[in-house]
């Protein structure tokens, strides 16, 4: 018994040491690279009964403001976007989401159809590490891993981040074993402005068809939505770059037509949306800033409501209370970020 206790306590101490060490070493994704905490923040939602879930790459989490969609149309939505989210990850995020709720519509950004193979370990981790453990997560990791990655480093991220022992910052200690909310229903707010001065000429491609893997996962996304009775809507955000070729667009148009899906290329209707690429982007047209994201949300929210029957839920008391809190956080974030942006401009002028 004494021996058993000795080994039992020793095991506990070893496991606790490793756990606390791991918590220190993993990136906190709060002030630096907040994109990394977007997937996990979803699980903190008070209510899991969103009517619309947006899934995709950065063109999702930077280009639509769920707050505006709520304020203007009473649409209860959430963005589950992450940087360079490939289609197999979009599928994984969809499957994961459907474990918690069944929305009326899922909006998928098609920009990632251009990727047929895993692209980047860093982006993989920002998408996958925040996901809760399930078979879906295991499958998505396996589908996403680069050649030099190991599965075990996802199970024990310390094995990946052990070198951070030399790079620990104040953030690592400030957010040790805790985290702050960084996004607004998945929307990462940017208020700074970098106008579009120049759009690089797109290189002609030898082959404009998408890869088999990308199609495979788009099919899986569609089939999963069909099985769950969720309407799948395809979108392309109004970003000017990376270039979205007309031939690519035609591929998606055909696919949507074949399967009776709605597809909206918002870049083609940028004028109608009212986007001014001199003020509505923070990185020369790659993504919208806050004003741009609110314009897109106003435009697309109307489509969701009028063409897809997404209900106005502002009449629901409890939901309205939750959104009031979200709006307050949104406004506070806006004020803080605008102040920071003004400061930065002043410094640049000096």
């Amino acid at each position: 018994m004494k021996k058993f206790l000795k080994y039992f306590l020793s095991t506990i101490v070893v496991l606790m040491t490793l756990f606390f060490l791991q918590e220190l070493l993993v990136p906190k994704y709060v002030t630096d690279l907040p994109e990394g905490s977007m997937i996990s923040e979803y699980y903190d939602e008070e209510r899991m009964d969103h009517d619309v879930i947006f899934i995709g790459d950065c063109e999702i989490y930077e280009n639509y403001s769920p707050i505006t969609m709520w304020e203007e149309y009473g649409i209860n939505s959430y963005l589950r976007g992450t940087s360079q989210q490939c289609m197999w990850q979009t599928y994984g995020v969809l499957e994961d989401t459907l474990k918690y709720e069944t929305p009326k519509a899922v909006v998928v950004n098609v920009m990632s159809m251009r990727f047929n193979e895993p692209q980047s370990e860093a982006y993989n981790r920002m998408t996958l590490e925040g996901m809760r453990w399930s078979k879906t997560k295991v499958d998505t990791i396996k589908a996403s891993m680069m050649k030099n990655e190991t599965f075990i480093s996802y199970v024990f991220p310390m094995l990946r981040y052990h070198e951070r022992i030399w790079e620990l910052t104040e953030e690592d200690f400030e957010y040790y074993l805790k985290s702050d909310k960084v996004v607004h229903n998945g929307y990462l707010m940017r208020v700074d402005i970098r106008p579009v001065d120049y759009i690089p000429t797109a290189k002609p491609l030898g082959d404009y068809s998408f890869g088999e893997n990308a199609w495979l996962y788009l099919d899986k996304i569609r089939e999963t939505c069909e099985a769950k009775g969720v309407e799948l809507i395809l979108v392309k955000a109004p970003s000017v770059y990376p270039h979205w070729y007309d031939e690519w667009d035609e591929n998606i148009v055909q696919y949507a037509a074949e399967h009776g899906l709605s597809y909206y290329n918002l870049y083609y209707v940028a004028d109608e949306i009212g986007i001014d690429y001199q003020v509505d982007t923070f990185d020369e047209g790659l993504h919208m800033n806050l004003t741009g994201a609110e314009k897109v949300a106003r435009y697309f929210g109307r489509i969701l409501q009028e063409e897809h029957g997404i209900p106005d839920r502002r009449g629901e008391e409890e939901l309205s209370r939750i959104w009031e809190e979200k709006i307050a956080f949104y406004e506070a974030d806006r004020i803080a970020k605008e102040a920071a942006w003004e400061e930065e401009q002043k410094r640049e002028e000096e």
């Binding site: 000795k6 060490l21 030099n148 094995l159 990946r160 052990h162």
Partner: peptide, 24 residues
């Protein structure tokens, strides 16, 4: 004493994890 021995080997384990050259 066991406790001292345990600390030595736990430190060794932690050193391997922290200071080992491995990974990407």
């Amino acid at each position: 004493p066991y406790i001292l021995r345990f600390i030595i080997f736990l430190s060794l384990l932690v050193s391997i994890i922290l200071f080992g050259i491995y990974g990407i």
